[in-house]
């Protein structure tokens, strides 16, 4: 494989990886605070892309406006899901909330089928994103630079919120100990809503950019990227935001490179991530950067 080819695959891997990372952040933030695998997160990702379609075709918004509106609306949906389906179960056994999350996931997916139909839909892509540029010998899609850059900026914003604002301090406090946070006067429910909002907004951004990269919208399009992002979050160490980013990028990179180097394995592409998940859970369940969680007896 020539260097040019390698760089091209590298950019593709980075693009896919940053999309995974954006979704993984949502999983990891919610898990860090509530110890809940937010199964509906992959549907939030899908809704983000569909809302853009809705905005451009139904309300004739320009695509960049539609994107911003979609991110905001999806964040609202994420908050609503928490309010309706998870908050009443805060004191219930953990699995109850997980089953509720599975229910929400199916609900959103099938509601999308009801609203938009199950037929794959084309989405508008600005032309300049997909005209390849030549940089020396490397053919570069502007998209593969645009996506990682925007993702990076979004992540910087997130880091600022989590480590430099009062709300972020609340998030970190809750993830350490939710009961003590209550006592210390943290408005726990508002912070949790904010967490869901931010996580959903990032997932929506990822879904929208995913649609630019793979321009076919389907109601089930969220499941596989959602699972993989969850795996990335576990790989990086669930509960850790830097872990989710690193896990996502590594997973995206490995996936693209594995298929590039061993084309015969392309059929096993989707199984690879699950094998990785099982391996991590068995060897190092806390992931690369996760804090050790211990069961209290």
């Amino acid at each position: 494989m020539s260097l040019a080819m390698f760089l091209q695959h590298g950019l593709n891997g980075l693009t896919l990886g940053s999309l995974y990372a954006l979704i993984a952040i949502g999983y990891t933030m919610v898990y860090g605070i509530l110890r809940l695998i937010n199964f509906a997160h992959s549907e939030i990702f899908m809704l983000g892309a569909y809302f853009v379609l809705w905005g451009t075709t139904l309300f004739f918004l320009p695509w960049y406006v539609a994107m911003v509106v979609a991110v905001v609306v999806t964040a609202g949906v994420g908050i609503l899901v928490d309010r309706v389906a998870y908050r009443p179960l805060r004191d219930a056994p953990r699995i109850s909330a997980l089953i509720s999350a599975i229910g929400v996931s199916f609900f959103l997916q099938n509601l999308t089928i009801v609203a938009f139909g199950a037929i794959p839909r084309e989405v508008y892509r600005p032309l300049w994103l997909e005209t390849p540029m030549l940089m020396g010998e490397v053919r570069v899609l502007p998209l593969t630079i645009f996506v990682p850059t925007l993702s990076f900026l979004l992540m910087l914003g997130l880091v600022w919120v989590v480590y430099r604002t009062k709300a972020g301090l609340g998030m970190r406090a809750i993830s350490k100990d939710i009961e003590t946070s209550y006592i210390m006067g943290v408005s726990v429910n508002r912070i949790i809503s904010l967490t869901f909002g931010i996580g959903s907004a990032l997932a929506a951004a990822s879904g929208i950019m995913w649609a630019l990269r793979y321009p076919q919208l389907q109601p089930v399009m969220g499941s596989i990227p959602g699972f993989k992002a969850f795996i990335a979050a576990v790989f990086g160490g669930i509960g850790s935001i830097p872990g989710a980013v690193v896990g996502g990028v590594i997973l995206g990179f490995t996936e693209i490179m594995a298929v590039a180097f061993f084309p015969d394995l392309a059929g096993y592409r989707d199984a690879f991530a699950f094998v990785l998940l099982i391996a991590i859970l068995l060897i190092k369940p806390t992931g690369l950067m996760g804090a050790k969680l211990e069961d209290k007896v």
Binding site: A85, S100, V104, S105, F106, F107, N110, L111, I113, A118
Partner: peptide, 13 residues
């Protein structure tokens, strides 16, 4: 199409 699972997932929730 899809209405069936909407009803059932709602029931599960």
């Amino acid at each position: 199409p899809g209405m069936r699972m909407v009803v059932f997932s709602l029931a599960l929730i």
